[in-house]
Amino acid sequence: MKTWWFLGVAIAAEVLATSALKYSAGFTRLLPSLVVFGGYATAFYFLALTLKTIPVGVAYAIWSGAGVVLIALIAWLVFDQRLDWPAVVGMALIVSGVVVMNVFSQSVPH
């Protein structure tokens, strides 16, 4: 159970860091740049802890899939980025894939 918490922290840190990239203005602003570096360091540290238990392919699929969807939602809500139907359908497919892996795959520890 602790492993899934680690993966959740890795995802949250990566989403925070990626969101801060926009505010860093090409790493010309100090505080957002520090958030980017700290967020990615935290994300990779917790992803590494996750990989002690969850296979790398499964962990990375969940980490990147959740990150893509969350970043797209943040871009829509915070940065006013438009999401058209193909984008929404694509994100739904990503979420569906993560659910299928977690519910039906024997590769994922339960």
Rank of each mutant, 00 (worst) to 15 (best):
L49D: 06
Y45E: 03
V9N: 05
W63D: 06
S33I: 08
L31T: 06
W63N: 09
E14R: 07
A13T: 03
A59G: 04
E14K: 08
A61W: 00
A20S: 13
T50S: 10
L34F: 04
V36H: 02
I11G: 05
L31D: 09
V35D: 05
L7C: 02
V35F: 11
S24Q: 10
L47Y: 00
G39C: 05
T53M: 13
G8E: 07
V15G: 00
K22R: 15
W63Q: 03
A48I: 11
I11F: 05
Y23W: 14
I11E: 01
G8N: 09
V36Y: 02
P32F: 13
P55T: 12
G38I: 00
S24D: 04
S33G: 13
L30Y: 07
K52R: 14
V9T: 01
V35C: 04
L30T: 04
V36S: 05
T18G: 13
Y40M: 10
L30S: 12
L7I: 08
T50P: 01
V15N: 01
V56M: 15
T28N: 14
L49C: 10
T53I: 14
E14T: 05
T28F: 11
A41Q: 08
V9L: 13
T42D: 05
P55N: 14
P32V: 11
A17Y: 01
L21M: 14
L51N: 04
P55K: 13
R29W: 13
F46H: 07
S33P: 09
W63R: 04
F44N: 04
G57Q: 09
S24A: 15
L51D: 08
Y45K: 06
A17W: 02
P32I: 12
L7E: 02
A48F: 14
V15L: 11
A48M: 14
T50Q: 03
Y45N: 02
G26C: 04
T53E: 15
Y60P: 07
V58K: 01
I11C: 09
A59R: 07
V36I: 03
S33A: 15
A17T: 02
T28E: 12
I54M: 10
L34T: 05
I62F: 07
P55M: 12
S24T: 07
F44W: 10
Y45F: 15
S19V: 02
V15A: 06
T28I: 10
I54D: 05
L51W: 02
T18H: 08
G8A: 14
K22S: 15
F44G: 05
T42Y: 04
T18M: 10
L16D: 08
E14Q: 12
T42M: 13
V58S: 11
T18E: 09
K22M: 13
I62T: 00
S19W: 08
F46V: 03
F46L: 07
